[in-house]
Computed example of a mutant assay.
Amino acid sequence: MKIYNLKRAQILPISLAEAWQFFSTPKNLQKITPPHMGFKIKYLSGNEKMYPGQLILYKINILPGIPVDWATEITHVVEPYYFVDEQRFGPYKLWHHQHHFREAEQGVEMTDEVNYAIPLGFIGRMANSLFVRRQVEAIFDHRHRVLENYFAKKFVTV
């Protein structure tokens, strides 16, 4: 099995507490997911507050017009510094997503690190080279832009 890695960091002009509040709320994921993916939460175990063992079931379009169910489990939570979500079933053979937060001079440095694998052996490796890697990168590029705009609005003075 070939494991791929994507790591992105971004400085947000907010406090650590504000970052944690936003990113540890599962419903906010829809705000930062590209609209064409048709992201919808179908099931959220427990309550709104994230906790280890929490299950979240989503419906997403992996390709235009091809919706799939994707279930993740929140496996680790160390408030307000990091949490980890892992796919339990869905489009990947492996999806392990770490979310890290640390105070920085200009606010909070948020780091996403994703380790993922594609099913189907050689065909999966080809798919990653041809389009999957670009799709994963595009999702995180979109998040970066949305977060930059979303949190910049909080600090606009009139």
Rank of each mutant, 00 (worst) to 15 (best):
S45D: 07
D69L: 15
V156N: 07
L6V: 06
E103I: 15
G124A: 12
Y92M: 05
A19Y: 02
Q135W: 02
P52C: 12
I11H: 05
I41H: 06
F89C: 11
H142I: 09
P26Q: 02
I139M: 14
R125P: 00
G53Y: 06
T72Y: 02
P13K: 05
Y150V: 08
H76C: 05
T25C: 13
L130G: 01
R145W: 05
E148Q: 15
R145P: 00
W95C: 13
F83E: 00
D141V: 10
K31R: 12
L6D: 02
L44R: 03
Q106T: 11
F140P: 01
E103P: 05
P13N: 04
L12Q: 01
E79G: 01
G121K: 08
Q135Y: 05
I74E: 01
M126N: 10
A9H: 06
G121I: 09
L55C: 01
R8W: 01
E105C: 08
K2Q: 13
Y51L: 07
W70M: 04
I62H: 00
G124Y: 11
Y150E: 12
D141W: 06
V146E: 06
Q30A: 15
A152I: 09
W20P: 00
M110W: 10
H99M: 00
D141L: 11
R88Y: 00
L130E: 00
L94K: 14
K153D: 11
K40C: 08
G90Q: 10
E48C: 04
T111G: 01
N61I: 07
L55T: 08
I60L: 14
Y4F: 12
N47M: 06
N115A: 11
S129E: 08
T72M: 01
N149D: 13
R143E: 02
A127I: 06
E18D: 12
N115E: 13
V146D: 06
P67L: 05
M110Q: 03
Q98N: 13
N149K: 15
A138C: 04
H76F: 03
V84Q: 03
H142P: 03
F131G: 06
T111D: 08
R102G: 06
Y116V: 07
I56D: 02
H99T: 01
L147V: 09
Q135S: 13
E73P: 01
T75F: 10
A117Y: 03
T157S: 12
E148H: 09
G38V: 08
E48I: 15
P67R: 04
H36Q: 13
S24V: 05
A71Y: 00
I62P: 03
K2Y: 08
R88K: 15
L55G: 04
L57S: 04
A19T: 02
I123P: 04
V146I: 15
L120E: 02
K59H: 13
F155M: 06
Q98M: 10
E79K: 13
F122K: 12
